[in-house]
Amino acid sequence: MITKDEVEHVGWLARIEIDDADAEDYAVKLSSVLDYFGQLDEVDTEGVEPTYHVADVMNIFREDVVTPSLDQKDVLANTAAEKDGYIKAPRII
């Protein structure tokens, strides 16, 4: 069971403000999602190697060769605020 406090904590980690009523609501809904996935815990995985990646491939590398970067104006095209070529964000503590 997910508690309201846990919802608020996860909200804080993602820097999303969640009001009281929503937090209650999300706690119930997230609990049901987790319960659903909980069914996976019932499978006996004794002696089975963990799967770290679904594709059965390994060692995909790139050579150390420079490719062109984006133009600064394209980089900044979608930013809410900019200053002297920098992306501007609110004050960070």
Partner: peptide, 17 residues
């Protein structure tokens, strides 16, 4: 990614993809 590592004297946000 293939962005160059030689950004030390470059304008901001010019060595990105």
């Amino acid at each position: 990614c293939g962005c160059s590592t030689k950004y030390h004297d470059a304008e901001p946000n010019t060595h990105v993809c």
